[in-house]
């Protein structure tokens, strides 16, 4: 292995090649990260920078040539540890990705996001039997991981096994712990989870759960689930005031404070020097 030592940082860099372009990366950088450094686009569905790789969708498959041998692998979880050559667009990769895409298309033919990605990969139809009515979930697990590892609530999980596997709340009942922060809806790659604010409540119908929205302490408009505000301000009295008002009012208030500050600074300057 050729290792380049960068004196200032003393970090061992590994030189790899992606689609013919060389790049030096730190050990354990994933292929997906390295490719993004080069602005090489690799499709990815179950990957999100906020959580650890999980490699469920395999759509990020690339061809890795290591010591003269080639293999197909998921780029989002492949840690770079030695000199390798990566092909993100070889015939093998394209073929594998298209088959995967057909499978995903069969699983949720109604998801616009999935159909758009399929179209991008040149897949319009699927040879596999499509799942009828049902959710658009592809079981990527992003919602479960974000809720557990980033939000720290663990309101949802995978349930059952095999072809019955689903993401659900415990006992398939409205969640008792969900704070309706909608982080799950935000990361879901297929739009299976939707959050709606209606008449003072935030509804997450996918989880059969709703939470009351709290009124802004300043303008009185309902703006965020009380449960979420409470969760964010747990043990943080310093945040309670600023998170109790809606983003709009917060902006107005910050603007006002800034204005007061500049005018007082100006008047001080006039006092000291006679001119502003």
């Amino acid at each position: 292995m050729r290792t380049i030592w960068y004196e200032e940082t003393l970090i061992a860099m590994i030189r790899i090649e992606i689609d013919g372009q060389a790049v030096d990366v730190e050990r354990d950088t994933t292929i997906l990260q390295a490719a993004r450094q080069l602005a090489i686009d690799i499709p990815a569905l179950c990957h999100h920078a906020a959580v650890k790789p999980y490699s469920a969708c395999r759509i990020c498959t690339v061809e890795v040539i290591r010591r003269g041998r080639s293999q197909l692998t998921a780029s989002c979880s492949y840690p770079i540890r030695e000199e390798i050559q990566v092909l993100t667009n070889s015939e093998r990769v394209i073929h594998a990705r298209r088959v995967l895409m057909e499978l995903l298309l069969a699983q949720c033919p109604e998801s616009k996001d999935i159909r758009d990605l399929a179209h991008r990969l040149g897949v319009e139809n699927t040879r596999f039997r499509t799942r009828g009515e049902g959710s658009n979930c592809i079981l990527c697990g992003l919602c479960v991981r974000v809720c557990r590892d980033v939000i720290g609530v663990s309101a949802i999980s995978f349930v059952n096994r095999g072809w019955k596997r689903e993401v659900k709340t415990p006992f398939d009942a409205p969640s008792e712990v969900c704070i309706a922060c909608r982080a799950c809806a935000h990361v879901c790659p297929t739009g299976a989870i939707q959050a709606e604010d209606i008449s003072g409540n935030r509804m997450l119908s996918f989880w059969q759960t709703s939470r009351e929205l709290q009124a802004c302490a300043s303008c009185g408009r309902p703006f965020a689930p009380g449960a979420e505000v409470q969760h964010l301000t747990r043990g943080r009295d310093d945040l309670r005031e600023s998170l109790g008002i809606c983003p709009q009012c917060r902006r107005t208030e910050t603007g006002g404070r800034l204005e007061r500050w500049t005018t007082s600074a100006q008047s001080r300057a006039i006092k000291d020097h006679g001119t502003p």
């Binding site: 349930v159 059952n160 415990p170």
Partner: peptide, 25 residues
Amino acid sequence: EPALRQVSDALHVPLSQVYSVASFY
């Protein structure tokens, strides 16, 4: 169900996790 809730509380494992394991095997 009540037993699973008790297990979750006592072991400090989120109920969703307990339910996930209970429905898997």
